[in-house]
Every structure is written in C-alpha cells, then in structure tokens.
Write a protein that binds this DNA or RNA. Structure first.
Lengths: 213, 213
DNA sequence: TTCTGTTGGAGAGTGGCACTATCCAAGGAC
DNA sequence: GTCCTTGGATAGTGCCACTCTCCAACAGAA
C-alpha cells in the first residue's frame, strides 16, 4: 500500500508517518520508483505499536526508537530481546548519587528484592531502569515523609509478581518469537493504564465501603 | 520563613516557586510589608506535594491545581474531598464517542465492574475519569488486536482491590482529616511508579524463570 | 540620610519536543 | 504536454513548564 493508504488505515496523518520514518520508528517502505514506495501489513502493525508507545505509554520518541531497535535486534536471543525491549522502556527519573533519601531507598529496594528472591536481571550487564525508577519513587516517598515500610512494599511486590505471571501467560499465547516480543512490549505498556485506573476505581470503592461501614 | 529560605529548604528555585504562586498551586505567604512575605511549614509541605504531582505524577499544572483545590474545599466532607481530589487526578485520554473499539471496551468495563461489585462512585454526579481512562486503555488493546478477555481483566481488578485495601490502611494511619486527604493524594500518585516498576522487575524475573525452566 | 542589596511581583522569553505546513522534483494518468 | 499526486526534506508551530529581566519597595549599613 502507499503512504496515503497507510495513513488512512492507521488514522495517522501522512505528515506524522513521514516524521516517524525520518525518526526511524518505522522502517522505510519498499521503493518502487524514485517517488513511490510500497508499505505492507507489518508497517501498519508497527505504526500502531509506535502510537501505543508514544501516546499511551507517553514515551519520548527517542526511547521508543531504542525499544524497537532492541526488539528487532536479530543478534540477540528471543528472551534477551524481549528483556532488552522492556528494559529500554522508562529512563526518566534516574536517582541522584549523593542523595541520602536515594541511598536509603536503594537499601530498602535491595531488601525487598532479596526477600522476593528476585535477582533483577544482572545478565544485561547493568541494573534495570525499572530498578532506578523504583529507587527514585521510594526516595520521593521518603523525602515527603510518607510511609514505605518494607512489609508494605512486599505486599506490592507480591501482587506485582502475580501480575507478571498473568502477563507472561498472555504473551505465551503467541506462536512466533517476533509476535511474542512485540506482544511483551505492547502488553507491558498498554496494561499499565489498565492497572492504574483499576487501582483508582478500587480505591474509590474501598473508601466508600469504609465510610459506609 | 522568606521565599529564599523556602527555596533553599525545598530545593526548588525561587523563580519556580514564584511561578507556582502565580499559578495558585501554592497559597500566598503572609504579607509582612509590601515587599516581604512570610511562609510556614505548611507551604513547605505543600510545595513538596506539588512537586510530587508534577514531577512524579507527570501531571499538568492545571490538573494539579484542580486536585489541590478539591483537596482543600472546606465545603465538602472528608470522604468527598478525598474522592474529589483523587477524582481530579488524570483527565488525559477521554475516549471518543463514535469509536466502535471504545464502545466494546465500555461494555467490557461495565461487565468487570459489575462482576467486582463496584459501583464506580456515581455519588459525585459523573463517571470517574479513571473509568474513562480504563475504557480508553482497553479500547487501545482492542484496536491493536491484543487480548483483553474479561477473565484476565478480573485478575487485574482483584489485585487492584487488594492494593486499594493496603493503600487505605496506610491512609488511615494519619490522625487528622487534612493529613489523610493529602496522604490519599500523595500516596495514590507516589505509589504508581512503585507499582509499575515492581511489575516490570517481576516480569523480567518471571521471564527468566520460564526460560530457565 | 544616603547608598546598596534584597525582596516579592509581573510579563516576556526560552527550550524541548511532538508534530505539521510548505516546497520541491519526479513520475504517472489522461 | 498538462496537471495531479507522491515521497522526501526543511523550516516552522504550538504547547508548556519553567526562567529571565525588570521594577518598586523597602531594610540594613555607613
């Protein structure tokens, strides 16, 4: 299909598609002549994934590019590629080195991970950005003086573990490796707002229940 | 304390504090003379909360203002204020009316809420933004062709319910209503990245476990 | 008192970033 | 040949959180 049709079927303007092509979020179409290029179904799928990452996942374009590059790096194994893609997902806060709140948070995170028996994936050579994200979040709680005792964090960790099992079950329903990798990325990102909104609804419900009882 | 001291103790530049004052995210200090104003500990606390909402919660300034206004609206009951504050939190996606994906998502969400026995708080006169957020998220899954069967959503809903119980327990450790309201807002926002990063860590862990076994 | 520095306040400006409007040359349809 | 469309490149737009700059009003030092 032509760029115009890709635009129509995806609901993304041609100008934006051109922008994504330029930013290498979308592989170029197969050049037919100097002024025509042909796009396939995989472009459509990829385009929708990109939109999910950017709009739903509120991910900067540069991060989305890293995620996609990791996902399609043929030199890596399926599991590594999947890990690397999910790995590349956040990036944002990056806790500071000399902050005493961050230091305390780091120690607490390590305790939680140890108690959960999680090794937080040293195999990619560095600490996961999710680890940094977690430290930064707990440091914020600490800085504001809000409680974050280890038992409470373990409740969250245990529930996160259950979520992960459900998520991975869903990913395994896909037959081919490329589909599984793409699904892992998409489902990680797309289920985040699902989870957060369910939590808020549940809080409203629980609050109402308590004030009634 | 003076603006300069407030800046120093909070780590927020005077220019930014002035900006927040102008945007009514921070109540004005007590005017001593025409050119001096006195700020108290509550300004410091509020300032840190604002930073949490904006930086951790990635909330636009206008939304943060709504949240804070709801939280301190003296005409509302504690529970309503708390609800209204958490209520005001997102706002972003707002599903479209004529989208068939959104319609299907809406039906599915209603089923999930019914099965959970949640009434999603009609008492504030309108549907929660979290409801809209959930519909939009599921519509995205649908649009991309990713699975979102009701049983799977119920797993998430059940876990969200458990989280809400833990969250509300934490809120109830605060003695006074203003503290509880502020805590509800802060903890809702600040525990979101905690939960999301734990989920990603758990996914990595679970993935590793499965590829090993 | 006068001089100097600081304060709070207000408006204009900045930078980053996702996108978009405008051009342009090269084809293709008629 | 004429006109329209296409893909590609470049420069611009709009938004928004923040920041710069200026100003009048003091406060403290000399």
């Amino acid at each position: 299909m032509r760029l115009a049709e890709l635009s129509e079927r995806s609901g993304v303007s041609t100008a934006t598609i051109k922008y994504y092509l330029r930013e290498r979020l979308l592989p170029p179409g197969e050049r037919i002549t100097a002024t025509k290029a042909e796009y396939g179904e995989e472009h459509l799928r990829r385009l929708r994934l990109v939109r999910s990452l950017i709009q739903v996942g509120r991910m900067p374009v540069s991060t989305a590019r890293e995620v996609l590059e990791a996902a399609e790096d043929e030199s890596l194994s399926e599991n590594t590629r999947m890990g690397a893609a999910v790995w590349a997902l956040p990036h944002d806060p990056e806790p500071e080195e000399d902050d005493p709140h961050a230091a305390r948070a780091r120690a607490q995170v390590d305790t939680v991970l140890e108690r959960m028996g999680w090794s937080y994936g040293q195999e990619l050579g560095d600490l996961s950005p999710a680890y940094g994200m977690l430290v930064a979040a707990i440091a914020s709680l600490d800085r504001l003086g809000y409680p974050h005792d280890t038992e409470h964090l373990l409740v969250h960790a245990r529930l996160a573990g259950e979520l992960a099992v459900a998520d991975l079950d869903l990913v395994e329903t896909y037959d081919t490796p490329p589909e599984r990798i793409e699904a892992a990325v998409a489902l990680t990102v797309l289920y985040e707002p699902v989870l957060l909104s369910l939590r808020r609804l549940a809080q409203t419900e629980e609050s109402k229940r308590r004030s009634a009882g």
